[in-house]
Simulated scan of single mutants.
Amino acid sequence: MSVRVSLVASARSSAVLAERFEDDRPLDGAGWRAVERAARALVPLGAAELRYCSPSARSRATGEALGYAPLAQPALRDCDMGHWRGLTLAEVTARDPGAVDLWLAEPRSAPHGGESLLSFITRIGGWLDTRPAGDGGAIVAVAEPSVVRAALVYALQAPPLTYWNVDVHPLSTVTLTGWSGRWHLSLPESAQIA
C-alpha cells in the first residue's frame, strides 16, 4: 500500500533578489499571472483525495487559485529563521557573514536562533511519513519551494547539505510515491523519441 504525494511549489510573492526569510507576503502580479499560465497543467492535481497547503499567504493563494480548496498544514510551514525573519540573504550576509557561512556549512547550526536545516528537513519528512497510505491514494500539497526542497532531500535520504544543490522554481511539481520511510521520486513520463 502506497500513497502518491504531489508537491506544488507556490507561486512567487516577490522577485528572487527581494525574497525574504519566512516571507508571508501574498502573491505579486507576476505570481498571479504565472498561476493563470500554469493552471491547465496543475488543476488536474486537485482531483487528489487530500489537498493541503503551507499556512503562508502565497501557498494558500496558489492552492485556492488552482481550485484545490487546500487545508493548511502547520507542519508544512517554511523553516523558522529566528531573528533573520523578514530579511534578505544579502542583508544578513552584510550584517554577519560568519553566521551565514556557518548556516550554509553545518546543517545542525541555527545561528539565527530558529530552526536548523536538519530540524527543518526532519519536520517536513515527519509530515510525509504520517500521510495515510492507501491503495494508490493521491495527495497534493502546495508549499514554499524550500519545503519542496526539504521533502526531496528527506525522501531521497540524501545528506542534508544536498538541500543547497536543489533548485525548486515557483509552480514546479514533484511527485513522491511510497509510504513512511520508503519514498521514491517519480519523474513525469516524457514523449517517446522516434
Rank of each mutant, 00 (worst) to 15 (best):
M1H: 14
M1E: 11
R4M: 08
V5N: 00
R20K: 14
R20P: 12
R25G: 15
L27F: 10
G29M: 05
G31S: 07
W32H: 14
W32M: 11
R33A: 15
V35S: 04
E36I: 08
A39M: 03
A41V: 07
L42Y: 04
L42E: 03
P44A: 05
L45F: 12
L45K: 00
A47D: 14
A48Y: 11
E49D: 12
L50V: 15
Y52N: 00
Y52G: 01
S56F: 11
R58K: 14
E64C: 02
G67A: 06
P70S: 09
L71A: 15
L76G: 07
D78H: 06
C79M: 12
G82T: 10
R85K: 14
G86F: 08
A90D: 14
E91R: 13
E91A: 13
V92I: 12
P97D: 13
G98T: 04
G98C: 04
W103P: 03
L104D: 09
P107S: 02
P111S: 06
P111R: 01
G113L: 03
G113H: 06
E115T: 03
L118T: 03
T122E: 15
R123F: 09
T130L: 05
A133T: 08
G134P: 07
D135C: 11
A143I: 02
A143Q: 01
V147A: 01
V147F: 00
V147C: 04
A150F: 08
A151H: 06
V153Y: 06
Y154E: 02
Y154S: 05
P159G: 11
P160S: 00
L161W: 08
V166K: 01
H169D: 14
H169A: 11
S172L: 00
V174Y: 09
T177D: 14
W179S: 15
W179H: 15
S180E: 13
R182S: 14
E189Q: 10
S190Y: 13
